[in-house]
Write a protein that binds this DNA or RNA. Sequence first.
RNA 1: AGGCGGGUAGCUCAGUUGGCAGAGCGUCGCCUUUACACGGCGAAUGUCGCAGGUUCGAGCCCUGUCCCGCCUACCA
Length: 962
Amino acid sequence: MLSTVAVTDDHRQFPKRFDYAEAEPRLYQRWRDADAFATAYGPDGANVDASKKDAKPYVIVIPPPNITGRLHMGHALNNTIQDALVRFKRMDGFDALWVPGTDHAGIATQTVVKKQLDAEGIDYRELGREKMIERIWEWRNQYGHAIIDQLVRLGCSCDWSRTRFTMDDGLNQAVRHSFVKLYEEGLLYRGKRIVNWCPVDRTALSDDEVDKADEKGKMYHIRYPFEDDAEGGLIVATTRPETLFGDVAVAVHPEHPKLAQHIGRKLVLPLQGRIIPIIGDEHADPEKGTGCVKITPAHDPNDFEVGLRHDLEQINVMNEDASMNDVVPEKYRGMDRYHARKVALEDLDEQGLLVKVEDHTLAIGRSYRSKVPIEFRLSDQWFVKMEPLAKQALEASGYVHGEDGWTKGDGESQLNLHPERTEKIYLHWLANIRDWCISRQIWWGHRVPAWHHVETGEIVVAMDEPEQVKANPDQWRQDEDVLDTWFSSWLWPMSTLGWPERTPDFERYYPTSVLSTAKDILFFWVARMNFAGLHFENRMPYRDVYLHSVLADESGDKMSKSLGNGIDPVSVIDGATSEELKAPVLAARPPDMKQRLKRIEKNFPDGFDAVGADALRWTLVYSVNEGDFVRLSLTRFTEGRNFVTKLWNGAGRIITALRAEVERGTSGAYAEPTDEDQWLLARLDSTIRDVRKGLEGFDFGAVGQSLYHFVWDDFCSWALELSKTRLTSDDDAVRRGALRVMGSVLADLLRLLHPIVPFVTEELWAFVVEPMNALDLWLDRKPSSELLIRDVYPEPRQPPQPDIEARFAILQRFVVKVRQVRASANVKDNVRPVVLVKALNDKTRPMLEQAKGAVTFLARLDDITFVDAKPKGVIGAYDEAFELYLELAKYVDLAEYLGRIEKELDKAKQDLASAEKQLANKNFVDRAPAEKVEGVRQRQAELASKVEKLAKDLEDFGNLES
RNA sequence: AGGCGGGUAGCUCAGUUGGCAGAGCGUCGCCUUUACACGGCGAAUGUCGCAGGUUCGAGCCCUGUCCCGCCUACCA
């Protein structure tokens, strides 16, 4: 079996590992140099890629990361998904565009720069608005691109020439345009309302910017004496005694059996001495507390409503930083709210008015940014009326309003949410929407385009400084507030493409195709983008929304900065020392810090080895599911790395064989595909179908599993092993035939995998394409590009081939059966027995004969001989398609093996009994579909025969115990 | 309180119209077999949360129930 030509078919020449650290930057640069992320049409509307002149656009606009952010695992997941989709569609013939950009992140950024100034000993308020904004721009220009650089490390194929920033001029214009338009339509108003107020950042917050959680607190029962009876009075229960200075009434339920009689009487407000009325209002729930509620309109949203109903004064008792203001008695002025509470309680106690204090769990809202409990504060703010916008969104989702509220109508939905069940959550929110407070009392952001007349209070809203302001600048001042960051984000899919201008980009690429984002900003952002798209352009800004799961650590805790349990994607790509792994935990100082640190020390005493971007991406895609959480641990990424290495080595085996063939200089004839080849092609087709379906349906976990199975099991474990005998054949045509199929399948496999693991596939692509071209051995589908990123996504070649798969399954079961017998009987690998086979159907013999060389290689046999009956003195193993016999006694002690047969016999008996029982059930035979019944009959026959044979074997070897 | 999910092998999770319970990791053997030890071959492992119901047949459908998570609202 010597090869006739001496060639260097030396597999050791192919590197054992993919050197991602070296290759990733090199390959990324190649893509950039080749303009591989560019669209078919430029921003001027000119066609720049003639081959995609008629291609349909496929557009994703990135959820803009904050300029203050560092890439976290959630970004890595979301951007991997987007990149996979864009690369898939780009290869599949679409004019794909992925618009990147960043968000100015109002409060977050201002806070970062404020801290920087604090460190320099500069008070930003003294610095003044203009200088402060200048400093923030400086900061942004210096640090604001860090996260973009990290997206590059991930391999994201964004069109960087179209990078946007939410504070760009164009986007600012879009913001002002939408503000003015909404104002003119009466959907935007200014009003005095109770808002969530952050005393640290001294700004209003939207409801979404407040994190609510149950916290332990106290409930204080305070007696408010009657004006006409100092010993009597009503007992009010409150958790906020320090706000009592702002009380303007005490409410009881108008039909309260005992308390209603007091309505109209007056009370003396403790500590303050002010006289306040007792009013009747249904807000006072007789079941709760003492049944008496103090009414503080300026510090509680419910009380605010009560106050409006009863025309009560609104008394604000706090300053912007939540210290007590001049309304309160002198003693308390300037005290922080909690200090004031303590002192007030002491004083009440002294006066005998503090009746009772009990433990109480209450929901405390904290600013998501400063983590400080928010204050309800009465102030002038800008609001967007949400109901009309939500109505439009509900209708766009095919809902109609009727007597039962909103219900699904006959109309088609313009929006598909994935996973589907999120739609219910979305609609529920839409149906219960509240107005959106969009003004923020900070400096960094889009300034409210409104001017107030200094004397009259008249308000003018306009895109640019209005004429009357220009004429009398001293009479007017521009509104001091800036807009909520989300007020620019909600326009993002439109504004990044040039809206409100009708730019060529906007005309061609809007509406976009898909929005992919984390589940937790469905309301913050997705819903509002829907509103903006529908309201301003009368259509959804995208057709599909994919909401990925939230990432959690291995014990199921959501990855968060405050727990320090996040895994840094860059640490995964580049590796990290044990100390670096510990850093986030040490920074966060969570309650279980010690355990977390210990775990890191134990599991990663020498740190974590770099695994590269592909392994990171692969692991994320492979792990994602439709649940609420994806649990990840560092070891999962090692598994991803193993997969990349497996692919690398499997491909390497074919590549070295291809190179060897090029060296041999063969040409011309090749053998036609064998049965094994047909099977592999059928498996490839089915994988292509799965992967396409998964990508189209946002079922990324299924995509990963299908590809994993194909690469590891079908391609490497079976096809590659089976091909070895042919690849080392001395018959040119046989070798070339095998290479033709294996090379072509490998190329398709790289195409299939590329959207998920772009680097390793791009690297291997060149290695495969070059020799395949040289040998001219393509089965079909010659590459259309030197770069895989530009090549074409595979389509199935044939419909499903159940016959071929069934035939090949016989081969697989045969090999496995022999291996099982060998393993359980301890037959060493260097022992090469002859196996005797009796075929039980007409497929078995042709299949095994055709692939005999390969099968004997896989099962480590000397030969396969076909027989018509079982000879004496052999051990049998039984399958529905064949019986195989081995002269095991020749090689090993049989005693061990017989135990195994007994077990197998027991199992077969059990299965047989169950099949028989089913067939004895008249109902089953009569009612079940005929094919099901037939299937069980067949199984029963096979099992009966198997039981018989195994029992006889045991008997023959005289070891039957039962 | 309401809404939405989830409970399947030691762990993380699949389970596509109801028809013989699956994968990866981990575990246990054997193997430095010429792509890969980041590997190969083989093995073990289940009250499908619990209780009913529908059905010839339920992990899957229905009812109830217990846990866990998330969201929304309220909390004097």
